[in-house]
Design a protein around this nucleic acid. Structure first.
Lengths: 243, 243
DNA sequence: CGAGGTGTTGAGATTTGTCAACCTACGTGG
DNA sequence: CCACGTAGGTTGACAAATCTCAACACCTCG
């Protein structure tokens, strides 16, 4: 949205304060008691600005850092041995990226900014070090990793057992909920990704996605003009998931 | 597949030795230096025997333990809000179960034994406690969690971008590789799961799975009689994945 | 103002699912 | 030890969902 000149900010000195960050609860510091927040803030060694279409990290990069999105929007993609490319997730402010590299396995996917974005950079080494001293952080880290595994399960259910219609409905409802939780409208928002990216994520072809948007519109469920989406009948969408 | 009377063994005293376990490398203790193995062995508080068709844990159980399979075979299933059921994985000796409950989120899936099985029970609390003192264990834990996330990505690619034929080929090749690594034949093994379970895992209907087995047989790729599988032409299967 | 990326729509092909019949192995109880 | 019931597996014919290919529309940006 706002598109700043982006001088690739690096906050070598810590102007970062988790304590005052309004995304704290969904971030790594969520659930960490106030008195420990200052120490946790030290994990954020730098900030980084990533321009639209640029990678935050790439599969194969030696992974050393976890990233928290302060602002912006990302997709993650996996490229299989045979060149198959698949979008594995969309991530917005307050969410974490780079979890699967934990433990030294290297990143397995690439994170690409879908708009100019701003992230907190948290080296694994610091997380582990400070985690040793702040048990609540340690626990939080594990919870966050566990939740990422669970997110994967949700996508497996989506891809493995839902019709195209249901997949798109589930996807839109998921976006809606996440925007809502962040204080944005859950019924009117911009789709930051192309139809093709939606299709890749949902295991559908671009034409199918396009047709479904049209069908949903005709069914009075939503209005959509290119990237601008208005959900008209949330419950109608939810009902689609029922069978 | 010896089937013992199974007195629900509980090794309150530690007759468990990670040091002498031939599955060590793939287990949680993998990569932990020999001198620390004894401490790591203390994580295994008990052993548990699970009979065929019985759950090791269920979604919603308060999760407190990670499980390592000593012998046997499991499936994990997720049941969505609307009752949709999906197999999210098959697990064999040396593999870990219950990772997503780490951090206190509770289990999100259920693990069901597909044959009488034997597992090491490792309470999260002990893992964390001993992990604080044995950094290699700590790192290993993170690696294992990261790998589980990556496994999820692989399934997303499979479900999101492969044809039915390719999914089944990929599945069989995956099983083959895992048996091979364990010292079993990679070309001749028993399918521990039903066609329906395969179908659920691959996002296919049972009839489709059945037809694919027939087709693969006719193409000279494999022989199959119910659960007994012989891969005749591994490279042929691999070639299927190419496009 | 033109080009290229993105999105939409239609017609027809293909893949996968559905329904129904039937077969086979296995375990149980007579 | 056999017979039968049942769960699991296969096959066929047909239906439905989704994909493919192709044409075109729209929007943005240089």
């Amino acid at each position: 949205m706002l598109r700043q000149p982006a001088p690739s900010v690096s906050a070598g000195a810590r102007e970062v304060s988790c304590a005052s960050c309004n995304l704290r609860e969904s971030c790594l510091s969520g659930g960490v008691p106030t008195e420990d927040l200052e120490r946790v803030a030290n994990i954020v060694s730098t900030r980084r600005r990533v321009r639209r279409d640029e990678p935050l990290f790439r599969a194969g990069d030696e992974s050393r850092c976890l990233y928290a999105i302060r602002s912006g929007f990302f997709k993650t993609i996996v490229i299989a041995d045979d060149g198959r490319e698949q979008v594995t997730g969309f991530f917005m402010a307050g969410e974490l990226l780079g979890m699967e590299g934990f433990g030294g396995g290297g990143y397995n996917d690439s994170a690409i900014a879908l708009e100019d974005s701003d992230v907190c950079v948290m080296p694994y080494s610091l997380i582990e070090e400070i985690g040793r001293e702040v048990p609540s952080l340690h626990r939080r880290l594990h919870a966050v990793l566990g939740r990422e595994i669970v997110r994967g399960h949700g996508i497996m259910v989506l891809l493995g057992s839902m019709s195209a219609k249901q997949r798109l409905a589930a996807f839109l409802l998921n976006l809606s909920r996440r925007y809502l939780r962040r204080g944005y409208s859950g019924s009117r928002f911009l789709l930051r990704m192309t139809r093709e990216e939606i299709g890749s994520y949902l295991g559908l072809k671009i034409e199918t996605v396009s047709r479904l948007f049209t069908a949903f519109h005709q069914d009075g469920l939503l209005d959509v003009q290119y990237r601008q989406l208005s959900i008209v009948d949330i419950q109608g969408l939810e009902r689609l998931l029922a069978d």
